[in-house]
Design a protein around this nucleic acid. Sequence first.
DNA 1: GTTCTAAGAGACGGCGCGTCTCTAACAGCG
DNA 2: CGCTGTTAGAGACGCGCCGTCTCTTAGAAC
Lengths: 200, 200
Amino acid sequence: MAGTRRRGEELEATILDAAWAEIMKNGYPRLTMEGVAARARTGKQVIYRRWPDRAQLAIAAIRHTLGPLVSEVPQTGSLREDLLTVLRRMADRGRQYRPDLFYGLLAEAPDSATGFGTVLPGVIREILENAVARGELAHADLPPRVVSLPADLLRYEGLRNAHRWGQEATEAEIEQLLTEILDDVFLPLVLTLAGPGVSP
Amino acid sequence: MAGTRRRGEELEATILDAAWAEIMKNGYPRLTMEGVAARARTGKQVIYRRWPDRAQLAIAAIRHTLGPLVSEVPQTGSLREDLLTVLRRMADRGRQYRPDLFYGLLAEAPDSATGFGTVLPGVIREILENAVARGELAHADLPPRVVSLPADLLRYEGLRNAHRWGQEATEAEIEQLLTEILDDVFLPLVLTLAGPGVSP
DNA sequence: GTTCTAAGAGACGGCGCGTCTCTAACAGCG
DNA sequence: CGCTGTTAGAGACGCGCCGTCTCTTAGAAC
C-alpha cells in the first residue's frame, strides 16, 4: 500500500489528469498547485520540478487530454464543405474548454499561448489548393491575412463569447456563426479574388 | 495638515489615478488593492466601498483616464480614408494599454469587458452610409458580421499581439496591418457586395 | 548489496485577500 | 454655533496560496 510510488510517464499523466480535473471543476482562475498536488496525491515539489508555473502546467494538461486539432485535411469534394468541416472541428474543440482558460493563459503566458492558432491557416491553404485542383478556384494566390481570416474570426468570436459558449442551446448558434463567416465574408471574398476566371 | 480629508469626486479621482498608475507600473496581474490604497494614501475600505473588486476598479480607471473612443464620425470625403481614420484612432488607443490589461479583464470580468467593442460597428455603419450618399457605394445593406469585420480583425490582432504592441518600431507595423485589413479584406468584400452598380 | 535519485509529505515566511474595528474630520441640520 | 451622522484614514485579523526548503524512504541503477 504505502509502498507504491509512481514514476515517469505514469506519474506525469496522473498529475496532468489531476490538473485538467481541477480546471474543469474550479476553473482556471482557481487552479492551484496545492489543489493539483492534493488531487494527484503527491507533493508540490514534484510538480514544480516539471513545470515552472500553473500556466505551463495548464498548457501541458491541455495537450495531454486533447490531442492535436486536425489529424488530416478533409476532402469532401467541395470547398465550402471542406472549410465547414475544419471550422466545425475547431469550434467543437473550443467548447471543451472552460471559458476562462484561454483568458488566463493569454494573461499569464502570452508567448506560449500565441502558438495556439498556427495550425489552421496551413490547413486552410491546403483546402484552397485542393479547390484550385478541382477547378473551383482559379488560383490560391491569396494574401496571408485572407487565408487566416476564417480561423481568426472564429477564434475571435470564441474569445469574446467564451463565457457564453459551452452552455446549452449554442449548437445552432455556432452553426449559424460558421455559416456567416463562410457565406457572408470568406467565400464572397475568395470568389472575388480568385473565383473561376479571375487571373492572379 | 492632518486635518485634510478628501471626499467625493476629488477622492474618487485620486483613487482612479492611483489605480491607473499602478497598472502602468506593475501591470494588471500585479494590481493590488493594497497597492492602490497605499499610493492614494487612503484605506482599502474606501476603495471596496466604491468598487467590488479590482476588475471593476480597473475598468473605472480606464474610463477615467481615457475618455470615449470616438467623439465624432470622420468626414474626409473618401470611404477608405474615413475607415482608416477611425481604425487608426482605435489602434492608437490600444497602444495606451499595458498588454495584460485586456486579458485580465476578460478573465475576471467577461461580462463587463464584453461591452467594450460595441461602439465602432455603429460608427462604421455611418461611414458606409455616408459613402452611399456620395455615390461611392450602391447601398449599405450589409450583414452585421461584414460591418463589424474591420473592428473585429483589429481587436483580434490586438489581443493576439498585445504583448508585442506598445513596444517601439510598431508604428509602421500597425499602419501595414490597417492597410491589409482594408485593402486585402474589407474593401474588396464591400465593393463586391455593394459596389457602385450592385443592386441590394 | 550499495548507492543515488526523486517521490511523498509537510513546515515555513511572505503576500494579498476581504472583513472588521477604531478614531476623528467634516457635511448637514437645527 | 453646536449637535449628529456619515465616512475617510489607518491598521489588525484570519485565511489561502505562493514558492522554497527539509526530511524520510521507495525503488531504480549498477
